[in-house]
Amino acid sequence: MCDNEKEEAANLKEEFEWVLREEVHAILHQLHSVLVECAHRFPVPLYGNEGQKQDKFILTSTPEQLKCIVTLTGDSITHADISFKVLRQMHSICRTSINQDGPWKLQQIQDAANHLQQAIGYIDNVDKHYVFRSSEEVLHIIQCLIGSLQRARTALVLPKKRAIDELMKSRNMKALSPNLPEDLAISFYIQSHKLIFVAYQLSSVHGTMRIDSCQADCAVPWLSDVLFMLTAALHMCQQLKDKLCVFSQYKDFTVGSRSASMLLN
């Protein structure tokens, strides 16, 4: 190694130590405030947030196929008036409702909130005065954080797919009053920043089952905030990870032989 390179390596090492000593804590602190802010947008009790906020939404589809007035309290739909047109009978309208005794729980909200809480927990576990001694230590925490944040985001963005019979047997469906006939089903779920209502109608055509559905959606304001903050936090994690990986190519800087750049191979 010539002198220039030696000097550069020495500088980089100093910079690396600075990153571990100062920058990591600063970024974790910043991440913490973003995530706590995000937690406070959730309508459920979460990280010092009093919780249980109530929102009212009206979901309709054009042309007047279905209409649904929903009260969302925390992670559950506590009240809803639902009406939709039944296809097989002309001009027949199916009506049902959800009431306080049998709320429709949106598991996606609880899942996302719990994953977020876990992510905040990872940062809380790091003492503010702790001195990081290797990039692997930090990368482990970042990896855990990214995992939790990604799961939180996915919970809201990608609703789980369920079989129609699973839906029909679900506890949510059974809580409807009056109960729906056997060939009808409804579902509420979250997809990105929207609350979606779907009505399914089963019919048998030449022995094969056919499912018709019609849906309506409405934007839930706090969801867009939450998703925005989750994405921002994820991006901050990724940037810190990338920053640390740059140093990992200088082998004397890292404790182990693992290189993050091989992640893709």
């Binding site: 693992r258 290189s259 091989m262 992640l263 893709l264």
Partner: peptide, 8 residues
């Protein structure tokens, strides 16, 4: 095959 394993 390097550690961590790839997705290939």
């Amino acid at each position: 095959r390097s550690n961590p394993t790839g997705m290939a």
